[in-house]
Design a protein around this nucleic acid. Sequence first.
DNA 1: GAGTGGTCTAGACCACTAC
DNA 2: TAGTGGTCTAGACCACTCC
Lengths: 236, 236
Amino acid sequence: MTVTYQALADELATSLIRQDPGSRVVSENELSRLHAVSRLTARAALQELERRHLVRRVRGSGTFVARRVEYRIAADMPPSFQATVRRSGGMPSMRLVDSRAVAPPPAIRTGLKLSPAAKTLRLTRLGSVDGLLASHTTTWLPLGLAPTLADRLGGAASLMQELTDLGFDPRRRWYRAEMDVVPVHIAEELEIEGRPLVWHTTGLNGDGPNGRLLEMTEAWMRPDVFQVRLELGSAP
Amino acid sequence: MTVTYQALADELATSLIRQDPGSRVVSENELSRLHAVSRLTARAALQELERRHLVRRVRGSGTFVARRVEYRIAADMPPSFQATVRRSGGMPSMRLVDSRAVAPPPAIRTGLKLSPAAKTLRLTRLGSVDGLLASHTTTWLPLGLAPTLADRLGGAASLMQELTDLGFDPRRRWYRAEMDVVPVHIAEELEIEGRPLVWHTTGLNGDGPNGRLLEMTEAWMRPDVFQVRLELGSAP
DNA sequence: GAGTGGTCTAGACCACTAC
DNA sequence: TAGTGGTCTAGACCACTCC
């Protein structure tokens, strides 16, 4: 039987499940030597594993077992990134990249039901899971909703936690998830090469089930980190 | 400036949007001649477009502009494949591949709340959009629920339409969507090469909001056909 | 400096499709 | 039979990371 790159990939895939997330995977050169195939064939096998989101490849560094976290989105789940990741056994962290008052894009203005002249506080944050870059989120909040919020988020604090501490009760009003080609500037910040498909979500949260609208968030999430699972209705 | 395969792909991508779905795209050989690059580089560009689901490649035949259909899944949408596709401007069709009485797998038995000894009618169907293979669905119904159903579905009839004609009012109770590596036997039936990620959905439908459970369906959907968009809550 | 993954070349054979 | 995409080889240079 001929050893194709698919067979190589399947063989590696079964051995990977016994390795710890983040641990090193055999390199292209090693693999080509071990199985007496060309480097391109060995490379094709590792790329196949990357397409299945089983490994993460870093130029100049190596190939590593992917750390995957189930990101379950359902009506009964809290609208918090950190809580959702922690529930799946991952260690989340957030870094505030930018914070400024801006005129919101039309879709955001409509979603938050703001007047045409209203401005918003826009927060840009990068999320990590177990120290690995994982998500890029942009949040718009009505300006004046929480003047002290930007200061409070300087550390690694959770936006949902801060809103709760301020006396709000954030709840999901609307949520959408799809897979889209990642925009160039997002790809750079998430250290993604090329233009692959990435999870793209948009959410609107309000104060309690019927109170005022609190914030709207757009997120791009690396699919080699998040196994997104969206559920409607109640589990059987 | 060096012409990389990414630049080639971007250039092709912008010209593709002016072409009709299903129309032929430049071949690997033509592309390599036109831009004076090796065939492997031209090939990499076309593979990049395939990863973005902009084209569909068929061995021995050629590369074609993908026919993409938005498949919106939301609480207010009817649980019907054909209705959902038609709403997005696609022409759906269904072919019954297999129909038989079987003991259901545990997850299905639990979902439909059946007794351990209960049997089900299992329908396997292949769905197409504009004549192109698009989905593989397996449906389990309590045996005896609708004795004439299998006969009625011999043609291209809609399961939801038939259930409605039989006096039922099918409604979504629960629905889950995620992306998974396609199993080998599904890949063969959907004419998918390799083991890429494919939409994987499971749904449970009942008679009206509170009536008896009607059916449970597992589906695998080609992502180069369906732009799946999942929504929770009501649109802003 | 050694090793890594990313890109590219110029060939080759294959299975398959369409005519 | 000609053309297509799928696989594979044996090289090469590059940018990058790690030590």
